[in-house]
Write a protein that binds this DNA or RNA. Structure first.
Length: 354
DNA sequence: AACACGGGGTT
DNA sequence: AACCCAGTGTT
C-alpha cells in the first residue's frame, strides 16, 4: 500500500478512535439499523436526526414492523425532520424488503443502490459498515476534508467534481476496515475539519494539508452558488365550525410537503387584505360550501417560514362558520395528522386549549 | 446538468 | 443573511 494512503487512513482512524461520539448506530452492524440511520442523516445533522432514530427503532424494531405500518403513521413519526420523500421511500423500501426478500437486506453496493432513497452515498455507507465492502462514501464532510488536505478546487456540486472526489475517496479507503474508515473521515469533517474556523495549527494533517500550507482553508471546498430563494405568500383558512371542528387538506400535487396535511390554502403573489381575499375565486368557491359568519386575521405580520429554496410569508385567517361541514374534523384530532412545522407551530399556539 | 426538496444550527 | 448538514430523485 502506498505510504501516503496509509498515513492518511491511519491518522484518520487513530483520531476517530479517540474522538468519536458514542452514537447508537455505531454499536451495531445490523443493516436495518444502519440503513435507517443513513436515510435520516441525509442532509441532516446528527443531533437533529438522533431523536428520530431512537423513536423509529422503538416503534419499528424490525423492518417488518416498518413495512406493516401505514404511510400516514410513518409520515407522522417523521414530522419535523424534513425532506419527506425520505419517509415515503423509507416505507416503500421496507415493504419491498419485507415482502420480496423476506426481510433480508441486500448485502452489496450494487443491489443496495436499487433501493428507493438509496443513492451512491447511502449504498456505500451500508455496504461498508454492515458488509465490510470497500466502498468509499462521499458526503459533505468528505468533500471538505479531501478538498482541503489535497488542495482540490474543483467545484463539488457539479458532475466532474463529484467524479473526481469519488475516485480519490475510493483510492484512499482502508480496504481492511472500510466501515471504520468511512465513519472516521466523516466524523473528522463534522467535528474537526469544520466549515468555518477549523483549528488548523493543531490538526493531525497540518504538516501535509495543502489548503493549510497555501492559506486556502477558508476557500475550500469550492461550491457553485445556487439560485436565490423564492418568496411565496400563503393564506391559510383556519376553519372554526360548530362543536370545535376545523378542516385539513392533504397536499397531493408536486412540490413541498407531499402527502402532509395543512389548512385550506390560498396562495397569492403578494400579501393581501381581507377585502382582496373575499374577492378571490378560490375563496368564493370555498365559501359556497360553508356558512361563514366571521373572518379575522390571526397575524398581521406574516410568519416567515424559511426552507432551503423558498421563504413562505404566511398569514392565518380565522374563518368562523355556523354549520358543521362534512369535511371537518374535531380540533382534538389535528394532532394525529402529519403536518409541516409551519402548521404545527400555529396549531400548538392557537389550539393550545383544545 | 440543473433543480427541487425541510428544518435547524452556526457564524 | 448566507452557508451548511452522514444526499436523492426528477426533468
Amino acid at each position: 500500500m502506498p505510504k501516503i494512503k496509509l498515513d492518511f487512513s491511519n491518522k484518520l482512524i487513530t483520531w476517530y478512535l479517540h474522538n468519536k461520539r458514542d452514537l447508537p448506530w455505531r454499536n451495531t452492524a445490523n443493516p436495518y439499523h444502519i440503513w435507517l440511520s443513513e436515510i435520516m442523516l441525509q442532509q441532516t445533522r446528527v443531533l437533529q436526526g438522533l431523536p428520530y432514530y431512537l423513536k423509529f427503532i422503538e416503534a419499528y424494531p424490525k423492518v417488518e414492523d416498518l413495512a406493516t405500518a401505514t404511510e400516514e403513521e410513518v409520515l407522522k413519526n417523521w414530522q419535523g425532520l424534513g425532506y419527506y420523500s425520505r419517509a415515503r421511500n423509507l416505507h416503500a423500501t421496507a415493504k419491498w424488503i419485507s415482502e420480496e426478500f423476506n426481510g433480508v437486506f441486500p448485502n452489496n453496493y450494487q443491489d443496495l443502490l436499487k433501493l428507493k432513497g438509496v443513492g451512491d452515498y447511502t449504498a456505500s455507507a451500508i455496504a461498508s459498515i454492515s458488509f465490510n465492502q470497500p466502498e468509499a462514501v462521499v458526503d459533505g464532510n468528505v468533500y471538505r476534508v479531501l478538498s482541503r488536505v489535497f488542495g482540490i478546487s474543483t467545484p463539488i456540486n457539479i458532475g466532474p467534481g463529484q467524479k473526481e472526489f469519488k475516485k480519490l475517496a475510493q483510492q484512499l479507503i482502508d480496504t481492511t476496515q472500510p466501515g471504520i474508515y468511512n465513519q472516521a473521515i466523516m466524523e473528522f469533517g463534522a467535528r474537526y475539519c469544520v466549515p468555518q474556523n477549523p483549528d488548523c495549527p493543531n490538526c493531525i494533517f497540518n504538516d501535509s494539508c495543502i489548503a493549510f500550507q497555501q492559506k486556502k482553508v477558508a476557500e475550500l471546498p469550492v461550491k457553485i452558488k445556487g439560485k436565490p430563494v423564492k418568496k411565496r405568500y400563503f393564506n391559510y383558512l383556519v376553519i372554526l365550525s360548530e362543536n370545535e371542528r376545523t378542516m385539513l387538506q392533504q397536499r397531493l400535487g408536486k412540490g413541498i410537503w407531499h402527502k402532509l396535511y395543512e389548512f385550506p390554502l390560498i396562495e397569492t403573489s403578494e400579501e393581501i387584505t381581507l377585502a382582496v381575499l373575499k374577492k378571490l375565486p378560490q375563496f368564493q368557491d370555498f365559501s359556497k360550501k360553508l356558512n361563514i359568519e366571521n373572518i379575522s386575521l390571526f397575524n398581521e405580520k406574516p410568519v416567515v417560514h424559511k426552507l432551503s429554496h423558498q421563504h413562505l410569508y404566511t398569514r392565518f385567517w380565522i374563518v368562523e362558520t355556523s354549520e358543521a361541514s362534512e369535511s371537518t374534523i374535531p380540533i382534538s384530532d389535528v394532532k394525529n395528522y402529519a403536518v409541516p412545522v409551519l402548521i404545527e407551530n400555529f396549531v400548538s399556539e392557537f389550539f393550545e386549549n383544545y
